[in-house]
Amino acid sequence: MTSGFLSDLPLYASGLLTTLTVSLAGIALSVGTGIVLAAALRSPLLYISLPIRLYVEFTRGAPLMLVLFLIYYGGAQFGLVLNPYVAGVVGLGLYGAGAFAEIFRAGFNAVPKGEIEAADMLGLTPGQAFRHIELPQALGLTLPPSIGQAINLVKESSVLSVITLAELTKVAGTISSITFAVVTPYLTVALLYWAIVESLSRLGFYLERRLAVKGY
């Protein structure tokens, strides 16, 4: 048993690496897309904001597994053949973007309008005001829910096992089917997920303390 566990270590390690990289890439993609979507949601032009609103509602309603099937198997039907890793990142990214868009939209709304008027009066372009005044504050203000959403994505990445990606959950299943052990592999990966999640929340606390802005 113990020797089995030790010999499985490389498998766990590669699963951990896959989960880490696919999650972080998915988080980065969904944060970036989320910022763009949030900016578009605030557009007064209905032909911009309405489609984005529909997209956000879709990703809020659809389970990740469904999104993955659509991208990985559905995409293949239309000639878009992605390897499981890329499909996983894109799936996590598109799925997470909707939630991040809602979080950031609330963050943008929390930046007082007067601060933008001050920027206007000083000649900043709308783009400069967005990048230097609105965005940094919106990201700082929404740090707690953003970290929560990032943690969700790490855990949801376990679903990527269904499109054959050899991430932690898939590794646990593989080891279990070979060794017939159930508790050890699944508890081991649970512990590894916890380690990732715990690191993320500590990073969140650290950033919150550094970026803290009082006195609104």
């Binding site: 007082p112 007067g114 601060e115 009066m121 230097h132 802005v213 609104y216």
Partner: peptide
Amino acid sequence: KELADVRRPLGMVFQHFHLWPH
């Protein structure tokens, strides 16, 4: 852009300061 150009000679001070807190 044009508005910013016409505004350029004007400075504004607000009741609630509107400093950028970050």
